[in-house]
Design a protein around this nucleic acid. Structure first.
Length: 378
RNA sequence: GCCGACGUAGCUCAGUUGGUUAGAGCACUAGAUUGUGGAUCUAGGGGUCCCCCGUUCAAGUCGGGGCGUCGGUA
């Protein structure tokens, strides 16, 4: 087959501002709205790849920053690329490293050229630029590459936010140039502008001018709170091309995702289901359950009797509480498994609702279930 | 039996020449966590300072007696 295979997005249904669609890539389809589990260091922590797939994930997220430091992008490339290396054969989206440089690295020095920083692992010095970020993501074999940006810290005054956003837009152009033409692979640009509508508009115009295969909303869920984030999402997604996927980076809690889907977002990633799995928090349709809490110690019921995940099928809250307290590794696996299952079931519910024009009803029952709270105490 | 050391929070221990409401780490009870540091942070509960008597304005701290634990010894 000599035809080059492209990465395409097909919009299927809409319900208000909400959409469903399909991203088709050589490594598989991504149903949107999609939730991408985070697999930072070439692993979705505590999970086997086949089990991540079984929860319903079409795509996972990997990290430029972590993988460039350890084991190194060139080494991953020599070992056949990230998919082969970590045994996940489906699509992978990689973050560009811009966010992690700011949140993890020490001694950062930000210039027009890029960011110089010291590794949080061994203190070694590194430089990340749009060109190097594109090269690393190519070496990893990432299917969806993110432009190199600066995630504007919050709060930021308008002048600071504008300067930061314009730097990210110049880096977006350099990312586009460095990425080049790679059939079968996608490059996403990232809208910035903090909470300022005119800056979001300016950023969107710059990105549309450059042209990307998808567009992310960056600089949100960084401490501004849900109300402020929704205020931005009331207008920001519509500033981006309707025929390309829209990705809200780093979001979020289940109700954040529901609200963002209502406002026209197609893709999400978040550490919450996996990190919470390691800190004993289970997400359920009735809200969050903290399995560390002593009230679960003799509770023979599963996290959620109506959940079809392997954890809820076979394990009690009392057992999960015990393995959490005993710091046994299986606690992370079992709770993460449940959380990923819950998130993917939520996404499936949203997709079904949008495609049957029943999103309002779905959202209402989503909130009603949460308001009802956890199961009655035993 | 004798000699010595020790006895403070659930555990391991600090506690100044006697001086405000006796502390720490861990554990416990909760909370936070949004483009991942299995991390971290925040708050809270918990005391017959082995017991009794004494000295003193004032005792976890000094004295006497008792009880207990550990070690040594005949």
């Amino acid at each position: 087959m000599s035809l080059s295979v492209n990465c395409t997005f097909t919009l299927e249904f809409t319900d208000g501002s909400a959409r469903t669609g399909l991203i088709q890539s050589p490594r598989g389809e991504i149903r949107t709205p999609a939730f991408m589990p985070v697999g930072t260091a070439a692993t979705v922590k505590a999970m086997l790849p086949e089990n991540v797939r079984d929860t319903g994930a079409d795509v996972i997220l990997g990290n430029t920053y972590h993988l460039m430091l350890r084991p190194g992008a060139e080494r991953v490339a020599r070992l056949g690329g990230l998919h082969e290396f970590m045994n996940w054969r489906r699509p992978i989206l990689t973050d560009s490293g811009g966010y992690q440089v700011m949140s993890l690295a020490q001694l950062r020095k930000l210039t027009e050229e890029g960011v110089k920083f010291k590794s949080h692992i061994d203190g070694s010095e590194h430089m990340l630029t749009p060109e190097r970020s594109m090269e690393i993501q190519r070496l990893l074999g990432s299917d969806i590459v993110m432009a190199f940006d600066e995630c504007t810290p919050h709060p930021a005054e308008e002048g600071v936010a504008a300067e930061s956003m314009r730097l990210s837009m110049r880096w977006a152009q350099r990312s586009r140039d460095a990425f080049g033409d790679r059939p079968g692979y996608a490059l996403f640009g990232i809208q910035q502008g903090n909470l300022y509508r005119d800056l979001r508009e300016e950023s969107s115009a710059a990105l549309r001018e450059i042209g990307f295969d998808g567009y992310a909303l960056g600089g949100l869920a960084v401490g501004e709170g849900q109300e402020a984030m929704f205020d931005v999402l009331d207008y920001a997604p519509a500033m981006l091309p309707a025929d390309k996927p829209r990705y809200l980076m780093g979001v979020g809690k289940p109700d954040d995702i529901v609200g963002a889907v209502q406002r026209g977002v197609d893709m999400f990633d978040c550490v919450l289901p996996t990190r919470s799995g390691r800190t004993a928090q289970a997400f359920t349709r009735r809200g969050v359950l903290n399995l560390k809490n002593a009230r679960h110690q003799e509770d023979a019921r599963p996290i959620d009797p109506d959940c079809a995940c392997p954890t809820c099928r076979d394990y009690s809250r009392a057992y999960l509480h015990h393995v959490v307290r005993a710091k046994e590794m299986i606690a992370a696996t079992l709770i993460t498994w449940h959380n990923l299952h819950y998130y993917q079931e939520l996404m499936q519910g949203l997709r079904d609702a949008v495609s049957t024009s029943a999103l309002d009803t779905f959202v209402q029952s989503f909130h009603d279930m949460r308001a009802a709270g956890d199961l009655e105490p035993l």
